[in-house]
Lab assay of single mutants.
Amino acid sequence: IRKQWHEDITQDLRNHLVHKLVQAIFPTPDPAALKDRRMENLVAYARKVEGDMYESANNRAEYYHLLAEKIYKIQKELEEKRRT
Rank of each mutant, 00 (worst) to 15 (best):
E55R: 05
Y54T: 03
L42H: 05
R38Q: 11
L13A: 12
K3N: 06
L13P: 00
E55Q: 08
Y45R: 13
K76A: 14
K3R: 05
L17G: 11
I71P: 04
A46G: 01
M39C: 07
L67V: 13
L17Y: 15
R14M: 03
P27V: 04
P27L: 07
L66I: 02
I25K: 02
K70V: 02
E77V: 06
I71R: 06
L78D: 12
V49L: 10
N41Y: 01
E7T: 06
A44I: 04
L34N: 12
N58P: 02
E79L: 06
T28I: 09
Y54G: 04
V49G: 01
R82D: 12
P31G: 13
K20V: 05
R14H: 00
R82A: 12
E55D: 12
E40C: 04
A46N: 02
K20C: 04
I25N: 07
Q23V: 02
E40G: 06
P31V: 14
K3P: 05
R2C: 02
N59G: 07
P27R: 10
I9R: 00
K35D: 15
A24D: 01
R47M: 03
L42W: 08
E80S: 06
L42E: 06
L66E: 06
R47K: 10
R2P: 09
M53R: 01
H65D: 12
R60Y: 08
N41E: 10
N59H: 00
R83V: 15
E79V: 09
Y45A: 03
D8E: 10
K20D: 07
K76N: 09
N58D: 08
N58L: 03
Y54A: 00
E79A: 10
L78W: 14
P29N: 14
L78I: 11
A32K: 14
Q75A: 04
M39N: 06
L67P: 03
L17C: 08
A24F: 03
H16I: 07
E55A: 07
V43E: 08
T10K: 10
Q75V: 02
I1F: 02
V22K: 04
Y64D: 15
Q75T: 11
V22Q: 10
R37A: 13
N58A: 09
M53K: 00
A44L: 08
S56W: 04
M39L: 13
Q23T: 08
Y72N: 14
V22C: 03
D8M: 05
D30I: 15
L34Y: 11
Y45D: 11
E80L: 06
E69Y: 03
A33E: 10
V18N: 02
G51H: 13
R38Y: 10
I71T: 13
D36P: 10
L21C: 00
M39P: 08
K35N: 12
I71H: 02
D30Y: 10
K73G: 10
A61T: 13
R38M: 06
Q4H: 14
T28N: 14
M53L: 09
L34G: 13
A32I: 12
K81I: 05
K70T: 03
E77M: 04
K76S: 11
L42N: 03
Y54V: 03
K35G: 13
T84C: 12
L17F: 15
Q23K: 08
E50D: 02
K3H: 06
